[in-house]
Nucleic acid binder design. Sequence first.
DNA 1: GAACTAAGTTTATTGAATAAACTATGACCG
DNA 2: CGGTCATAGTTTATTCAATAAACTTAGTTC
Lengths: 389, 389
Amino acid sequence: MLNGDDALDTQASVRRANLRRALQLVFRNPGSETRAGIARATGLTAATASSLVAELIELQLVVDGEQAASTGGKRATTLSIEADHHVILVLVVRPTDARIALVALDGTEVETRRVAFSDESRDRMLDEALADVAAGYSGRLLIAGVQLPGTTDGRRVFESVQLGWTDVPLAERFEAALGIPVLLVNDVDAEAIAEASREDESSGYRLFIHIGTGIGAAVTLDGELAPGPRDRAGEIGHVQVQFGEDARVCRCGRHGCLESASSMTAMLGDGFDDALDDDAITMLAASADEEKLAEGARALARTIKLIAAVLDAAEVVIGGPARALGDPFLSLVQAEIDYTATGTVKVPVRFADADASISTGVAQVALSSALGVRWSPAQLRAASAPPLS
Amino acid sequence: MLNGDDALDTQASVRRANLRRALQLVFRNPGSETRAGIARATGLTAATASSLVAELIELQLVVDGEQAASTGGKRATTLSIEADHHVILVLVVRPTDARIALVALDGTEVETRRVAFSDESRDRMLDEALADVAAGYSGRLLIAGVQLPGTTDGRRVFESVQLGWTDVPLAERFEAALGIPVLLVNDVDAEAIAEASREDESSGYRLFIHIGTGIGAAVTLDGELAPGPRDRAGEIGHVQVQFGEDARVCRCGRHGCLESASSMTAMLGDGFDDALDDDAITMLAASADEEKLAEGARALARTIKLIAAVLDAAEVVIGGPARALGDPFLSLVQAEIDYTATGTVKVPVRFADADASISTGVAQVALSSALGVRWSPAQLRAASAPPLS
DNA sequence: GAACTAAGTTTATTGAATAAACTATGACCG
DNA sequence: CGGTCATAGTTTATTCAATAAACTTAGTTC
C-alpha cells in the first residue's frame, strides 16, 4: 500500500515517504499523536501534516480520536491506529502443525486457528485453511507473513530439513491463492525481530541466538533484520567451535560443532525435546550433568565473543527453550565472555522475554514490508495484554 | 555538496537524489554516458535528465565530451567526469609518518606528499602540512578523508594504540583548520573498501581480514562498509580462538588470542615487521616453521567460518602483509574451511589485490560521503594506470 | 532526397510542499 | 468578564521539480 520502491526519484515517492513518516508517528504514539505533533516531528508544515493525515484516514489506516487537553490554546485532535479494517495474515508453519493468526493494525490478534497436519496432506490442508481465512477477510487483508524453519530469501524456501522442502517457490504459490503480497521469514529471524521489537532503545547490532535441539542465529540492526542477502545467514549450528579432545561427535557426523556442545540436547541429554515446557526443562536441567552445561556455556560464549567483536554488537540475546535454563546458565556464559584481561569484548548477554506471542515477529516484519512502519514496544505490550472488561 | 541528509521529505531531496543518480551513472561510465542514457537508466524523462546534467556541469562535476557514434539518429554528446576542479584531500596517518594525497574526481592522484614525524611534533607537523596543502587548493577542496589505525566513529578517535591517541575529536579539529568536511576512517576499513571497490560485482557481505603484526577485520555490504555503528567493530585480534593446550600466550597477556596464532609475527617469528616488503616476507616464510603456518591457517579458518556463517558472506578477502604468504597459505586456510561434511559453509577465500594505491579506500569513502557516488572498478584501474604519453 | 530515428530542448501542465493568512478554541490575566 | 495570547488546524496562492508533448537538430537508410 505504501510500499512503493524506495527510490526517491519522483514526487510520488516523497509523498509515500512522508505518509510513512506520519503513519510511523501514529504507530509510535497511538492515541496521543496529533496533526501538529506530526508537523513538529517531521519538520513539515501543519498544512502538509493535515493533508497527510487526511490521506491516511482515507486509506483506513488512522482514525481521529479524543480531543487532547489544551496546552495553552486550541485542543488537539489525537490520532489512533484504525484497528477495524486491515489485518495481517500470519502463518506459522511447523513440522506437525501450523498456526494462523489475523493481526489487526494495533497489534491485537483478531483470530487464531490451528491446523494439525495429517500425513501427506500438509500442502492441501494449508491451502484450504488459507483460502478459508482469506474468504472471511476479503478486501481487508494487507499482507501475509509466513514463518517457517529453514533458509529463505523471503520468496523461496531454499531448504527446510524440518519440513522436507527444497527450493519451493512458496511466496508465489500463496500470492496466487490469496491475492496479497506474501513474505517468507525464517523462524529464528522472526524470533529475533520479536525480541528486538520489545526494546525501546534498539540501536546498533544485536545478536540473537536460538537454542533448542538445534542452534540458529540472527542479527538485527536498529531493531530490524540486518540488511543484505539472508539466504543462509545465521546457520551457525554446524560450525566447528571445539577442537582436539574436547570435540564431540555431532549428529551431522562431524566433530566439535556448536550444536554438539551447546544445543539443549547436548547439554540436557536426549530427554530434551523442543516441545517441552519451561517447567519440564527446569526439571531436566536440575538433574543434568553440570560439566556438560558448563561446557555448552563455554562453547557458546566463544562463539558469541567472536561475532560480537566483528560487528561491535551492543547486546546478545539467547532465545528458544534455553531460556528455561535460567540465571545459572546465563552467568556461566557471561563469565566466559567477560574473561578478558583487556577491555575488548564485554558484550552483555540476556535471555529473550518469554511472553512474546508467536505471531509478533512475523507480523512486525510483514507490517514493515507493507507499510514501512513498526509497532512500538508499548503498543505490542498493550496488544498482548488481556482486554479490560 | 550533494550530501544533504537522506531524509526524502521535500522536493529538494528528490533533486539531490536524482543529481546523485545521474552523477553515479557518469562515474560508472565516464566518457560514454549520455543525457539520453541517463534518462533511460533512471526512468526519468529526457528533459529532466538534461536539466540534471546542466546542474552537474554548473557544479563543475561533469563536462561534455566527444560526440558518440550515431545509433540511427542524432549523435549523442558523451559526458565525462570533470577532473580539473574538485579534489579530495586524503591523509593517511601512521605511527612514524603521514601521507597526503590530493585525488581528483577521476580518481587520479594529483599530488602526494609525505610527512615524516620527528619526536613530539606530530600534531604541529600535521597541522602545518594540511594548512599548506589547503592553501594551494583553496576553493577546490571537496572533503577530507583521514585514515588512521585505531577505533573511530568518523568524528572522534576513540583509541589508537599505535598513535597514542585516546578520545581525540580529530575531525572537528581538522574541519576548523580546513573549512571542509572531514571524515575519519579506520585503516582496515579503508583497506576493505579499496578491495571491495575493485570488484565489478560486489553484492552481499564480504569479510575482509587484515593480517600483519596485528589482526583486524571489516565487513562490507554491496561494496560499502556495512551499516551501523562501527565504533569498535572488527577488533577481533584478541578474541580467544584456541583453547586448552593449543592456546599460546598472547602479547596482550591472555591465552589463545587470534593474534597469538595467526598474526604474521606468530607465524613468521619476531623477525617480521609491518614495514617489510613482499620479497622479504617471502624469504621469511620460506624458512618459517611449517607447523606454525598451518596452525595459524587453522585458527584463521575457524574464525572465518563462524563469521561467514552468521552473515552468509559471499567472499572472504585476506589483506595486509599476509598477502605475501602466497598460495600455499591460502590453500591451507581454504582447505580447513571446506572441511565440512554437510555443505554448509564453503565461503571462498582469496588475497587482496596488491596494487591498490594507499589512498583508494579513503578517497572512495570520502567521495561517497561528499557526493553519494562511487568509482567503478574500471575507473580506478584507469586512474592508477600510468598515463599514456 | 524522402522517410525515419535518436538526441536533446522548449513549453505548458501536474503534484506536492510551503508560506502566509485565517478560523477555532482554549488559557491566562487584569 | 472581556481582552490578549497561544496552539490547532484549514484555506489559498506560490514555488519547485518532474512530466508530457511538441519541436529542433543531426544523423542513417533506402
